[in-house]
Design a protein around this nucleic acid. Sequence first.
DNA 1: CCCCAGGCGGTTG
DNA 2: CAACCGCCTGGG
Length: 289
Amino acid sequence: MYEIVHYSDRTEICGLDNFSLDRIFDCGQCFRFDKKEGMWCGVAFGKYLKAYQKDETTIVLYCKTEDIPVWCEFFCLDEDYKDIISTFPSDPIIADALNTGKGIRILRQDKWEALCSFIISQNNNIPRIKKLISALCEKYGTEIKVGSDTFYSFPSASVLAGASEDDLYALKLGFRAPYILSAAKAVESNEVSLETVSSLPADKASLALESIKGVGPKVAACTLLFGFHMTGAFPIDVWVKKILEKYFPHLPHPMAGEYFGKYAGIAQQYLFYHERYVVSESESKASKM
DNA sequence: CCCCAGGCGGTTG
DNA sequence: CAACCGCCTGGG
């Protein structure tokens, strides 16, 4: 079990298991944290955090002491990854992926922010997704002052529901602008209640989210996995499709979620990270040749 | 100029 | 149903 130690300027959390700050923020689940001078800095739930990993089992957090419970929840420190990992099917590819991605944890992010983020992610790449989300926050979020730095919260559905499509276009959201607007209106009007969605079984929850224009099965699955912490949700994107075809040629895609088990979404994240890591390694080698 | 980037909606056969 | 195509935009 982990332990929290408060100091005058920081809080240390030690005794962590399966925790890699770098991999947690690099694996593509979260778009609001950046590493600057060795420190991961970002905002979630309207709160600012600066953190680094001191050693394998210790992280050091710079934030308001009162927000520590928020970050423990965010990082899911209550979850035992030994138990989670033990539910994965035993398979050489999974074993490789667990090794490559050791320390990855699925965060508990804000539901609304996750929905918007993955609407924006479609047909897009990670640097640009980050850029677009931060533009959205700067224009519509609330200022958070930390020393000489200014950060912005992710704007609420009701704020975005009041934006015009033209304004969103101006942020370079492109064809996603009307999608964000339709999501904001649906959530703000409670036509799609995120609270209700969170109480539904995953398949029904997905259909409810898919009633929003611009939300299909992939975006819905990512939203459920990263925002609602429905760990069985199994997003199938172009990468996962490649992975399934390459390593699990006899497994029909609709069965994949079932095959990987109760925590299929978490297994997916390890496989995804592994494949991206392997491919980027081989590409960087190829470019040096 | 091409193609692609963690898809989706709309149309067509 | 499945297959296809266009889509805002930026980067290689």
